[in-house]
Write a protein that binds this DNA or RNA. Structure first.
Lengths: 203, 203
DNA sequence: GTCTATATACAGATAGAC
DNA sequence: GTCTATCTGTATATAGAC
């Protein structure tokens, strides 16, 4: 079982890849074991011998996507202004949450939150919660540097990140046809950061 | 078909009530027509004769819940400060979005956003979009009154409302066991409003 | 381990009596 | 209109050959 570069391990990966794709694209109930087997170019029995059943396959497939986002190890370099640093964070975060991929994982986790609480919780901890902690740490450093006045860094981070979702993210989540344009998104993002800096630049 | 206070109309309502309950509680796929019929104390055939099939029943059941929230017709009375007015709005909004009921409808709409875009869009327009417009109108009045300086009222309303969701709402959505306490929620809400007022009180 | 073929259950939807 | 009984497809899961 321990990384046998065998055919078996290869098929296991194929199955996992296919399952992740299908579950996130079509949802849990609308994905059948037959479809997974076909997509992985493997027989159904092989799927069952690798994973015990649909439940375990689903858990394994989604857990892989519950890894910490690329918004990690944020550095606060001394030669950059608070605005510049936060601008970069905002841009990266907005990119992240507007990606179809991330929305799909979010969607399937939320929709199965009652049936598979472990999966949804995993996503929450690896995603939103982790990101809030990271940004909070940055805000603390900017506070220590005297650029900002932040009493509760966790509150402030939560506020900034949630704001940034904007109507754009909601429309993707609800699959609304009329999407927000790229320039509009940039305008809103900038507006959020301005607003945030006004609120926390001093007292 | 027009409001026949008949047995038929009564059963129709029972079916609709049962469907709404089951679809929002267990999701679309995990709700069967048999369950709906049983819950409504009606035969399955009756369900099919009233609504054509599962699709139509789902649409009808969820559309009923896509009505404008109680956050409507917000009044700006002259003898109340901007803070007081917004405090009331914030409290009502937080109550709304933290209710299990609202989260359940949100969840099923998001999870079926690809299969039933009309339903998800309906929820979006009646819920989030409507609320943003309402709050934006209030902010414009407060701007006109000179209490706030708001350039883009829609942006500002979106920011305020999204912020208020906080970790509390996320934890309900993802069904995370460790919920945020009531006092913590109030503390965060107050913090949001303070922050919002600092950002928009003047330039 | 991997395949084809099959068992079993239950879903959505319909037929026909009353 | 409403019911009981049924059709038909397809899902998860398993049996048994190679």
């Amino acid at each position: 079982m321990k990384k046998p570069r065998s055919k078996s391990e290869e098929k296991r990966q194929q199955i996992l890849d296919s399952a992740t794709l299908l579950f996130t694209e079509r949802g849990f109930a609308d994905t059948s074991m037959d479809q997974v087997a076909k997509q992985a170019e493997v027989s159904k029995q092989t799927v069952y011998s690798h994973f015990g059943g649909k439940d375990e396959l689903f858990t394994a497939a989604i857990e892989r996507r519950c890894v910490a986002s690329d918004l990690k190890d944020l550095e606060v370099s001394d030669d950059q202004s608070a605005r510049t640093i936060l601008q970069q964070i905002c841009a990266r975060f907005v990119d992240l949450i507007l990606s179809e991929d991330v929305v799909r994982v979010h969607r399937v986790c939320v929709s199965q939150a009652v049936a598979y609480p472990e999966v949804a919780r995993l996503f929450y901890k690896a995603g939103p919660q982790q990101t809030i902690s990271e940004v909070a740490r940055v805000l603390e450093q900017l506070d220590a540097r005297g650029d900002l006045v932040v009493d509760d860094s966790r509150y402030a981070a939560t506020q900034l990140l949630l704001m940034l979702k904007g109507e754009a993210r909601m429309r993707i989540e609800y699959n609304v046809e009329e999407k927000i344009s790229k320039t509009e998104i940039e305008s809103y993002t900038e507006n959020c950061l301005d607003m945030f800096l006004r609120a926390y630049s001093s007292r």
